[in-house]
């Protein structure tokens, strides 16, 4: 089981860091630019750019929207890899050998995705850093103002809230795509359809659970 877990950590976590880092950095920059451009009133302090970027990234962008991107990347990978094993009778081969195929295939992915908060931490850091770079080098504010905004009214519970969401989304990312892969029927075309369906339902569940958790934890 250990090699399978390590392989899934590599496929699902390490393999996702690049795209998550790229998206987070540039979306953080865009959030900072948009905030700055919409602050037209002269009485609004410049440090609000850093504050708004931090809040957007930590509360919603990193945990929720990165999870939707991961539903496309990781979710499709899980569904198609398990679905292909179903189509090519590899799951039947496991069952004939008396191996609990669900345990063998899904459990390592579930364990690997417990490291998902690590990916989200990177997204948070790079999102805020991207905002800083865009703000300073784009001429929308000074580094001091941005850092002051990032530190302003910091509420530690927001981090706890974000990581509670992240753990729940990790569970959804491991289970829903595995379900669609494991129980698919048909051939190669159906593997593609199952990947699409799993992405749609994982995204829908992430959005609904996000609403529910936000209402419960912050409402």
């Amino acid at each position: 089981m250990k090699p399978l877990i390590l392989k899934d950590i590599d496929d699902l976590i390490i393999g996702s860091i690049g795209i998550v880092a790229f998206i987070s950095f540039f979306v953080g920059g865009v959030v900072a630019i948009q905030t700055s451009l919409n602050m037209t009133s002269p009485i609004m302090p410049k440090y609000l750019v850093g504050f708004a970027t931090r809040q957007s990234i930590i509360l919603e962008f990193a945990p929720t929207f990165i999870s939707i991107i991961m539903a496309g990347k990781v979710g499709s990978f899980i569904t198609s890899s398990i679905g292909t094993m179903r189509v090519t009778e590899q799951i039947d081969a496991l069952e004939v050998m008396g191996i609990n195929a669900i345990n063998y295939l899904v459990f390592p992915k579930f364990i690997a995705l417990t490291l998902y908060p690590f990916v989200i931490s990177i997204a948070m850091f790079l999102g805020i850093l991207g905002g800083l770079m865009a703000c300073v080098y784009g001429g929308y504010g000074t580094m001091e103002d941005y850092i002051e905004g990032v530190q302003l009214d910091f509420i530690p519970f927001h981090f706890i809230y974000a990581f509670i969401k992240t753990f729940v989304f990790a569970f959804l990312l491991a289970t829903i795509p595995s379900y669609y892969g494991y129980f698919m029927k048909g051939g190669a075309l159906e593997v593609g359809k199952a990947s699409t369906t799993s992405f749609v339902w994982t995204s829908v569940m992430i959005i609904l659970v996000n609403f529910l958790l936000t209402s419960l934890l912050l409402g």
Binding site: E89, Q90, D92
Partner: peptide
Amino acid sequence: MGMVFQGSALFD
């Protein structure tokens, strides 16, 4: 039991 599947079903 040993089983030889139609498509071999080797683990990729």
